[in-house]
């Protein structure tokens, strides 16, 4: 059965279905991370020693991760632009670069976590580290989720380009929006946990 406005824009809203869908999803994600940040603010403001363990966090590694994520956002948007320019080869290249960046991010994260565990710093050590592990862990899960979709879109999903170019481009735009949001969350997580 054909659902209308999967690739064409509905005239009165100017949107295709998935775009409205992803923005609603992102709205709920904003509320999810809003709840987490709100908890962080409340715990921090009610406890003078909250930031006691902050100096254990590795700022250079986190800076590197920030740069990696920003780069991946740019390659993601370039992947979408390449599709708009009808260049599937470049799309694949940029998409693989994005995937590479996200793998890099997770590897850096892995080293960060294992360094903490080596120093016997666990989520149970205190609430700051608990918040750190919960928030970055949840963010990491979002990265992994995005990677799964990206692997599909450079792998088996790319077949759709032959049959339905518009819809495929829309799909890439939608995963792009999600990916930029994950980047955006990190932009706030980074100063909130590591710097301030």
């Amino acid at each position: 059965m054909q659902i209308p406005y999967n690739e064409k824009l509905r005239p009165d809203t100017g949107l295709y279905n998935a775009k409205l869908g992803i923005w609603l999803f992102l709205a709920s994600e904003i509320m999810l991370f809003g709840g987490l940040f709100s908890a962080y603010v409340l715990l921090r403001s009610s406890n003078a020693d909250f930031m006691m363990h902050q100096h254990y966090l590795n700022v250079p590694l986190a800076t590197l991760n920030t740069i990696i994520l920003i780069t991946s956002s740019v390659t993601m948007v370039m992947a979408w632009v390449s599709l708009k320019l009808n260049d599937l080869k470049k799309y694949k290249l940029y998409m693989l670069l994005t995937l590479l960046c996200s793998v890099g991010f997770l590897i850096v994260k892995f080293f960060e976590y294992s360094a903490k565990f080596e120093h016997h710093l666990y989520p149970s050590t205190d609430n700051f580290l608990g918040t750190y592990f919960t928030l970055t862990g949840l963010h990491g899960l979002h990265i992994i989720g995005g990677m799964v979709v990206m692997i599909y879109l450079v792998g088996p999903g790319v077949k759709m380009w032959e049959t339905n170019k518009e819809r495929f481009t829309n799909r890439v735009e939608v995963i792009g929006l999600y990916w930029h949001f994950v980047d955006l969350v990190w932009i706030f997580l980074f100063p909130a946990l590591y710097l301030l």
Binding site: T13, G14, L15, S73, V77, G176, D183, L184
Partner: peptide, 15 residues
Amino acid sequence: VAANFMHLNNEKKMI
């Protein structure tokens, strides 16, 4: 990021 990569500087009213 939001304005440029996510195209929020030029989006539809609904969003």
